[in-house]
Amino acid sequence: MFEARLIQGGLLKKLLESVKELVTDANFDCSESGIALQAMDNSHVALVSLLLRSEGFDPYRCDRGFSLGVNLNSLNKILKCAGNDDIITLRADDNSADSLSLSFENPNNDRIGEYELKLMDIDQEHLSIPETDYDATIIMPSAEFQRICRDLTVVSESVTIDVSKDTIKFTAEGELGSGNIKLKSTSSIDKPEESVNIELGQDVSLQFSLKYLMNFTKGTPLSEQVILCLSEKMPLLVEYKMDIGYIRYYLAPKIGD
């Protein structure tokens, strides 16, 4: 028996919006500790990994671990039927369940919507992601990161990210010309969510596809801050933390031959 009731149902709606562009089908792996999902995009260039901890639900019940195979587009369509302030409850009987029940209660508890989503068998490759000490970790406003990706898309399909002592620089070069945006590390005691924090072990310079980064920024509504972790010749980690867990995106770099 699996049951998870999320008071802030709107969070689940935002989460689905932030993964559906990248991944079509995925397993929600449910266990005592919470709900996890890991899936790569079709081209094996990007990966999304999300975790919703059991403590974030009220109540949360999961007798034993199992996977719910979901078409994310279909789930997203059903979640659009929930109000932003609704309480969302997910239910499935056991591992052989062929559907996921969803109920949407409004805040006054006088309107309850009930839906069933057919589940599917998904044979998914699971990657083991090593613990990494990154060369550079940047915490910055998520809206700023979104704007930079959007702006540089005008110029090129790729962006080079250079991190040095107190600066992160995003550079794009294309047929029409070039552009770059430099952000200096700042510390705003009054508004820490607006500051740019750079932790640097050694300088890093890496190139990434902007198309994927634009997809990752669908996570912007989930958190005011985004965390970028970079190491030379390693995939980039883009993380949005939530009270209840996180969503992490990994992107393989472009490397010169």
Binding site: M40, P235, Y250, G256
Partner: peptide, 14 residues
């Protein structure tokens, strides 16, 4: 010229 790498060349299957 740089080419897009696959994640599979960094992360192993578990």
């Amino acid at each position: 010229v740089s080419s897009q790498k696959s994640l599979l060349s960094f992360f192993g299957k578990s």
